[in-house]
């Protein structure tokens, strides 16, 4: 289903979006399997309506909220963002949603809210990938509060003008375009304002490879591969479209000030 009204924005004007079929059939969502095509094959049964989100922690307003109480359909915008996966592929996707700050401010986080923590649904009945393996479910992610309040951080409920396909994180997901894709947590059921830096799934799994910040940075390699370049999808049948990776995925102007004075090699 399509949305009635979407506000146009200047984000990503001139970028060439990947075809919908590519963006909706090639992604990581381990809750539905390890393969890139698994989410599209296995996510159909996910029940996204009704959908509740628990808001808790250091905020004046907390509790359980229905999705439609959190997202005002009249405020939906389209933003075309570059998505850079830590695995060195990337895609341009037109998302539909609301800036994360707009949503978070509604809950009036207090002065102790230094970080925001998110959780994905944990339901092995609906998410076959959660039945085994060595990942400690639910999937967890987090942002520093100033990162979360940055205008670029986005909560998407749709893409390509329509409701998010289940495999892409329906009904609501985070999109943090200057960070590696795994920060953009899908199918969110919990938002918690916290004082300490929260534990996050990939950092728990391999702390020497994935840090809390996970900013796109061509100067800091993954231990097993270079991050200097990326394959922009889709490429040709034989030859990939290899392009240079840019600092903060090309969003330095908007986000570099968040990290002034920070050692980004240490805080990867």
């Amino acid at each position: 289903p399509a949305f009635k009204k979407i506000i146009e924005t200047p984000y990503g004007v001139g970028e060439k979006a990947a075809p919908f079929d590519v963006a909706s059939t090639y992604n990581n969502f381990y809750e539905f399997g390890y393969g890139k095509g698994d989410p599209a094959s296995n996510a159909a049964a996910l029940k996204t309506d009704p959908w509740n989100i628990v808001v808790e922690g250091e905020a004046d307003i907390t509790g359980t909220f229905a999705l439609e109480d959190i997202i005002n359909e009249n405020q939906l915008e389209e933003r075309i963002y570059r998505l850079r996966c830590v695995e060195a592929w990337s895609m341009v996707v037109p998302w539909v949603g609301i800036s994360l700050a707009t949503v978070l401010k509604k809950f009036k986080p207090n002065s102790k809210a230094k970080y925001v923590y998110f959780e994905t649904l944990h339901d092995p009945e609906q998410m076959p990938g959660q039945r085994g393996g060595n990942i400690k479910w639910p999937y967890r992610e987090g942002l520093r509060i100033d990162e979360a309040m940055n205008e670029l951080a986005f909560l998407a409920v749709g893409m390509y003008g329509r409701v998010l396909p289940n495999q892409n994180g329906a009904p609501i997901r985070l999109v943090v375009p200057w960070k590696y894709g795994f920060k953009s947590i899908k199918s969110i059921v919990k938002i918690r304002f916290v004082e300490e830096m929260p534990e996050t799934t990939w950092k728990m799994l391999a702390p020497q490879e994935y840090g809390f910040y996970a900013n796109v940075n061509p100067g800091v390699d993954h231990p097993r591969w270079t991050q200097k370049q990326e394959r922009r999808l889709p490429g040709g049948i034989l030859f990939p479209n290899v392009i240079e990776t840019r600092m903060f995925n090309g969003y330095s102007e908007e986000v570099a000030s968040l990290y002034s004075g920070m050692n980004l090699v240490k805080n990867y």
């Binding site: 200097k228 370049q229 034989l238 030859f239 990939p240 290899v242």
Partner: peptide
């Protein structure tokens, strides 16, 4: 070919 696209940097 498929992964590095013959990119010498990569």
């Amino acid at each position: 070919v498929l992964h590095a696209g013959f990119s010498w940097v990569w």
